[in-house]
Simulated assay, not measured.
Amino acid sequence: MPKLRLALTIIGWLLVMAIAVTAASTSVIYAYRYGIILAGLEPQPWLTGAALAIADVVKIGLPAIIVALWARSHRATARTLSVVFAMLLGLSLWSLTSITAIERAANDAKTRTASQVETDLRNEMTAAENRIVELGSPPPVAAVEAEIDGFKADARWRTTDACNPLHVFPSTQRFCEKAALKQAARANAAEADGLRMRIDEIRRKLTTPAPDEAKAASPELTTISDVFGWRTESVGFARAVFFAISLELLGAFVPSAVWYLRPVIGTGSPVPKSVPQPAKIADTPGVPRPPTPSAPSRQVTRKASTGKRGCKRDPNVLDFVRKFRERHGRSPNIPEMRAEFPGLHKSTLWRAARVALDTEHCPQQLTALRLRRCRSIG
């Protein structure tokens, strides 16, 4: 059961770490895109994009490295890397803000172009309608040509040789004047028909839904600008900065935080088993005592002295080791002790752990030591 729980914990942590790394890769993608745009006129702009992307990847792992170096008392290296991290963070903020502003400017340019086209079409339609009014709003060309055909079917059109001035008489003069007016009206009607066709075409264009690239990229910016009276450009820049800071905080610190929450897989130092000690033998005259090996006596003497030194150690550390063994059934390892006591050195914690273990078995060791000494004297 504990192994299954540990396996599920590891799998869950791996999933969370994968999500954190995926979220952090968003900043890397934006850095690469900014490098491509920045080096757009170079022969190989992808090199600049790759360089910025690699720098952004390094930035993601720096917080964990800085904390580890600081905990191991490498303060100078940690401070230097902190400066490097701040510079890379600033570069990423600049990249994100710039790419957001560039894309919005491009979309706004498309929107302005579409808006200008619509304005020009409306102006052209108004001018065509005014011209038709100037022409007297003539009827369609087909109606005018039908009237002209009526004049041509008249006998006077044939007798005057199509209203030739040389053959026009006073009796046919009025007829030819009307025919001439209709022929002049035919030109105006043809022009009016062309203008009417253009007006219909413009109306179809204006009623057709605008394509996506012609729509406003961020309509909410215009709404905020109208409500608060701010400039649309200022609102867009503030949004780009907020977007960049949010992504950088997500990509720069979340993976390191998840890394420090990783489950502990190590078993730590093994718990020393208590060695059964021989029962104390009373001093009886004439009873021989069994011989005692000398090598274990030296080992016990060393441990006993260690236990005596351990009694002077930090009681908080000793109490932590004892409680940890009671809860987990094993001794804490150095990373677990450093997480509890970050101000103490690694060697100090290691000695304190040894002292705590020896102190727990100190009474039995002292009893065995006294027994061996008595036997050696006897």
Rank of each mutant, 00 (worst) to 15 (best):
R325E: 10
Q365L: 10
I224M: 12
I265P: 12
P43W: 01
A127E: 07
V355L: 03
V16I: 11
L318N: 11
L62R: 02
T159C: 05
S27R: 03
R239W: 10
E360W: 05
E360M: 05
E124D: 10
V57H: 07
P293I: 13
R75A: 00
E177P: 08
M337C: 01
K59P: 02
E103Y: 04
T113E: 15
I132R: 00
A153L: 09
R122M: 05
K308G: 15
L96Q: 07
T159V: 11
S95N: 04
S246E: 11
D108S: 08
R372A: 01
A217W: 14
E248A: 02
F243Q: 14
R302L: 15
G329N: 03
I29T: 09
V67S: 05
S269T: 12
I132Y: 01
S98A: 13
F253K: 06
L344D: 01
V28W: 00
A216M: 10
K273A: 07
H328Q: 11
V264S: 04
R156V: 11
P165E: 08
N107R: 15
S297H: 13
P138I: 02
D314T: 09
T111A: 04
N123T: 13
I132V: 09
A217L: 02
P276I: 15
I224C: 06
R204S: 08
K215E: 08
P139Y: 13
E147R: 10
I65K: 10
G236Q: 06
P170H: 10
A184G: 05
A216H: 14
D161F: 14
L166H: 06
R302C: 15
R239Q: 09
P276F: 15
F324L: 02
A71L: 09
A146I: 08
L62S: 04
T207Q: 15
D161G: 11
C362P: 12
N130T: 14
P43Q: 06
S27E: 05
M1I: 15
A50P: 04
K205V: 00
I66K: 00
D193A: 06
L6E: 15
V57G: 04
T284K: 08
T48L: 14
I54V: 12
R313V: 13
A238E: 08
L181G: 03
I54D: 12
S376G: 04
A76Y: 07
I36G: 09
T301K: 09
A20N: 00
A179F: 01
A240P: 04
P278G: 05
T292S: 13
A216V: 11
R198I: 06
P290T: 08
A106G: 07
A185T: 09
R370V: 03
I11C: 14
Q173L: 13
L4P: 05
R372H: 07
S73N: 14
S218K: 15
R372L: 00
G61N: 02
E340L: 01
A252Q: 08
A153S: 12
A76D: 07
D358E: 06
K303M: 15
S92C: 06
V57M: 06
L96K: 08
D149T: 11
A352M: 06
K308V: 14
P63Y: 02
K205I: 00
